[in-house]
């Protein structure tokens, strides 16, 4: 994951101030990610983030990896938090 804004510097020359990337683990569900620019899959493929918040698959069974497609609801949870 890279941070939104990259190396951008505001026009007034002050140091760039960026919102932090925030991730939240949903119980038995995906990782909810805000403020990221990209998600890099295990095989190195870079997936650009195109919505304000994305759900990253955490069960490993999504048909739309790396994004969540709700499949976790039909598989046994692998983690408890």
């Amino acid at each position: 994951m890279t941070r939104r804004g990259g190396e951008d510097v505001p026009v007034d020359g002050s140091p760039a101030r960026r919102e932090p990337v925030r991730a939240r683990l949903c119980p038995d569900g995906p990782l909810l990610l805000r403020g990221a620019d990209e998600v890099v899959a295990a095989d190195g493929t870079v997936h650009p983030v195109t919505r304000p918040v994305v759900a990253v698959c955490a069960c490993g069974r999504s048909g739309r990896a790396p994004w969540c497609d709700g499949t976790h609801a039909y598989v046994k949870p692998r983690r408890t938090s």
Partner: peptide, 14 residues
């Protein structure tokens, strides 16, 4: 909507 609503489900509940 598969992708969007997988996100929205988490956002709307919590």
């Amino acid at each position: 909507h598969v992708e969007a609503d997988a996100v929205h489900e988490q956002v709307v509940l919590t």
